[in-house]
Structures are given as C-alpha cells and as structure tokens.
C-alpha cells in the first residue's frame, strides 16, 4: 500500500533515537523488545492515517498538482481552494451540517433520557415482569433495525413524517435504546442503596431519587453517548430512504449525493470529503481520552 513509503522513512528515525540516548545499558534483546512494538504500531498508524491525510492535503491543491505530486504538501504554487468554491456554490453544506447536528444531538439526548429512566426502573423496583421487560428491551441489541425498513417507511408515511428530521430522530432513538437500557441498568445497580433509602426516609419522591442518582451513573451515560452518536451521524440508509429532501439532508447523504454527481471533479470530491470528516474527527481528537474511557468502560460491562 501507499503508506509503506512514508512509514519506512519515519519509523526508524522515531525509534532509533531512544536506545542511543539510554547509552549502552540494555542488551540487544531488550532493545529489540523495546523498538519492535513501535515499529509495528507506527507502521499501522501510517496505514490508518495516511489515506486520510492524503485526502485532506490534496483538497487544498490545484488539479494538476493533485495528479502530478499526490504525496507532497500544498505549496504556495500548488495551493488552491477551487474544490471548496465548487462545493459551496453547488450544495448547501452549512444546512446539511445543521441537520446532522440537530438529528444527532436530539436523538442522543432522547436515548440517554428515556434509556436512563427505563434502566432506573428496571434496576430499582422489583415488579412482576421485570426480567421479561429487560429481555424484551435487550433483543434490539442484536437485531438490526434496518430489517424493519419496509414497515418503518409505511409507518412514517402514515404519520406524515417523511422528509422530516423528527421522523429520523424517532427511528434513531428506537435504534439506540436497547443498548442504553442494558448498560445503564448495570450502572444503576451499582449505586449504593443507603443513599436512595436515606433520601426516601427524608420524604423524597421517586422522581427526586432518580434525579439524585443520575450524576452517579455519568460514566455510563458518557459511554452510551459515545456509542450511539457515531452510527447516527454516519448513517446513510435512513436519510436515503426516509429523508432524501434537500432541506432535511444530512451531511452523510449530502456528501454521498454530491460525490455521485461530481465524481470526476477531483477538487470538489476531495473538498467534500475533507469537509464531511473534519468536524467529527476534530471532536473525536479533542475528547479522545473521554471517548476511550467511555468505550472501554461500556465494553467491559
């Protein structure tokens, strides 16, 4: 693959510096043991990141530079924003971003709210049918919601929610709930009993108790937010089928349609790809620590 070119030059430089600094202490074997992981990890990091870098880099170059020297950074001579100009002239990406943000944020909020409420009830009260209801809600983790698309489409047509952000939000909320309920139930079970009982003795209502324990399951909420956000933002299937209209188009669908239409305009294609991936990537890199914590704590559950 293309990336081996770059990692062949960066890997030895990055790792060779360390043993020299440490002097002649470690034996050859331990030194190899120390460098080995870095070589492999750097190589794979290149495999993961070079394709993305290639796209971002070339989106700022002129058409001739894209083809003549794809691996070089944009220089003052080759710099060009032609692609971005085409994109903003031909498509309303600022609107698509607004739509994607609205759908993702509202859906994740509803998943967290409804999921936490149901999980609290399942973890807190033993009523008849508790285990059965938990199982009923958990089935959806394994069964993809897409299989019901034929009926979802009919249902939303009947509710007059085709080409509406609200329709998408309802579907995504249903999609995210099963995992949220299961994981949050486990988190709510860990909240100490004494705390809730003390509040009840003081005359707190059940709603107040719920409000009080919410901050204690924050890691669980973060994990679920992380888990449910990406599939919603990145989904193509439901926007394509339920909300293809221009005014409700999401970034993913907008990019897909634009790319299909302008496939031979390389500047525009590279610019759209860069535009569509940068917001989520920036968000991810900024919050990567919280993201990984949420992911691992959710996964271990």
């Amino acid at each position: 693959m293309s990336s081996t070119v770059t990692d062949a030059t960066t890997a030895p430089e990055g790792t060779a510096a360390r043993p020299v600094r440490r002097g002649s202490g470690p034996t050859l074997r331990t030194r190899a043991g120390r460098i080995g992981p870095h070589v492999v990890l750097l190589a794979y990091t290149a495999v993961a990141c070079v394709p993305i870098l290639l796209v971002v880099m070339n989106s700022f170059k002129s058409r001739s530079a894209i083809f003549s020297s794809p691996f070089s950074m944009p220089t003052p001579e080759s710099f060009s924003l032609a692609g971005y100009e085409t994109v903003f002239a031909r498509a309303r990406f600022e609107l698509y971003f607004f739509n994607s943000f609205t759908v993702t944020i509202v859906s994740v909020f509803l998943v967290l709210l409804f999921g936490a409420m149901a999980a609290f009830a399942l973890a807190e009260y033993d009523f008849r049918g508790n285990a059965l209801l938990g199982l009923y809600l958990a089935i959806g983790i394994m069964i993809p919601i897409r299989l019901g698309t034929v009926s979802i489409l009919q249902l939303l047509v009947g509710m007059n929610l085709i080409n509406s952000l609200f329709g998408l939000i309802l579907v995504y909320t249903a999609m995210g709930l099963p995992l949220a309920v299961l994981v949050l139930t486990l988190f709510f079970r860990q909240v100490p009993k004494e705390l809730k009982e003390a509040a009840r003795v003081d005359g707190a209502s059940e709603y107040w108790v719920f409000r009080m324990v919410i901050p204690l399951v924050r890691p669980g909420l973060a994990a679920i937010a992380v888990f449910s956000m990406l599939p919603i933002w990145n989904d193509l299937w439901f926007p394509l089928i339920l909300a293809p209209g221009e005014h409700v188009r999401t970034v993913t669908l907008g990019a897909q349609l634009f790319l299909g239409q302008f496939v031979s305009d390389w500047n525009a294609v590279l610019a759209v790809l860069t535009l569509a991936m940068l917001p989520m990537m920036a968000l991810y890199i900024i919050f990567s620590k919280q993201f990984m914590q949420g992911l691992t704590s959710g996964a271990i559950k």
Partner: peptide, 9 residues
C-alpha cells in the same frame, strides 16, 4: 418508542 419504531416494524 422502542415498540413502535423497532419491534412493530
């Protein structure tokens, strides 16, 4: 929400 948009469909 789950019943209406996931189980029923």
């Amino acid at each position: 929400v789950y019943t209406m948009f996931m189980v029923y469909p």
